[in-house]
């Protein structure tokens, strides 16, 4: 078995990086192979040694990582983009909810150690004990944590399409609008009824989500600026 030449190695690398792109990726790979073989043949016909011709053809073609990224961007559909963005948002939302449950569970644990065995304050006739409340919030933490981790990990493994260029600025605007709603909903007695709407998510839900949304506003604004400044050589 002979050692693969530069063109073969390059095409193998490109093939790996185009996984999940379907027919568009297969076609791009075929075009890349045609192009490189033509380039090598043309150089060899001028007397350039085959090895050198292959190395130079690959160098002129550009990095496989850059090419794969551009091909994914060029072939993405709006439906795939919406799916990919929704997937990402659902993953992060689940992770945030899991963290809010975790905070509430910790609060219940502290409360349980202070006053063991007491029922949780509530208006219902069937009030849970603090132990039951703690178990409830821990179970929800694990459930939403697994859901969030599963969604985010699956998105990395499947690698559907890159996030759309407009997502950072969209996230920044939505986060900025929602931050005061959750933040003041948690802190203000006037808006404390909001806690009742999401009561099952735990007593820290609105405060925690408000803080996370505030951080997300700053992070996504920075992300949007970084995307705009990112060099796009020959992006057309």
């Amino acid at each position: 078995m002979t050692e693969p030449d530069s063109v073969e190695r390059y095409l193998d690398d490109l093939f790996d990086r185009l996984s999940g792109t379907g027919g568009a990726g297969r076609r791009a790979l075929a075009e890349a192979e045609e192009h490189l073989r033509d380039d090598v043949a043309e150089a060899v016909s001028r007397g350039v040694p085959a090895d050198l011709a292959a190395r130079e053809a690959v160098a002129r073609f550009g990095r496989a990582a850059d090419l794969a990224r551009r091909l994914r961007r060029a072939n993405r559909s709006h439906r795939a983009l919406a799916l990919s963005s929704g997937w990402l948002v659902a993953g992060w939302a689940s992770a945030i909810v899991a963290l809010s449950f975790l905070l509430t569970a910790v609060d219940r644990l502290v409360e349980l150690r202070r006053t063991p065995g007491n029922a949780v304050e509530c208006a219902s006739t069937t009030c849970p004990t603090q132990t039951q409340a703690l178990e409830h919030y821990l179970a929800l933490t694990v459930g939403f944590g697994l859901l969030g981790a599963g969604l985010l990990l699956a998105r990395r493994v499947v690698r559907p399409v890159p996030v759309p260029a407009a997502l950072p600025i969209l996230t920044a605007v939505v986060s900025a609008l929602l931050t005061p709603v959750f933040l003041f909903g948690a802190l203000s007695p006037v808006l404390s009824d909001l806690n009742l709407l999401v009561g099952s998510a735990g007593i820290y839900f609105t405060l925690f989500v408000g803080v996370v949304l505030g951080a997300a506003t700053l992070a996504s604004a920075g992300w949007a600026i970084a995307v705009r400044r990112r060099p796009a050589v020959a992006a057309g």
Binding site: A32, D39, D66, L67, R70, V233, A234, A235
Partner: peptide
């Protein structure tokens, strides 16, 4: 880089 022409064509 010659490869950039193909994404642009796509």
């Amino acid at each position: 880089p010659e490869g950039t022409v193909y994404p642009a064509l796509h």
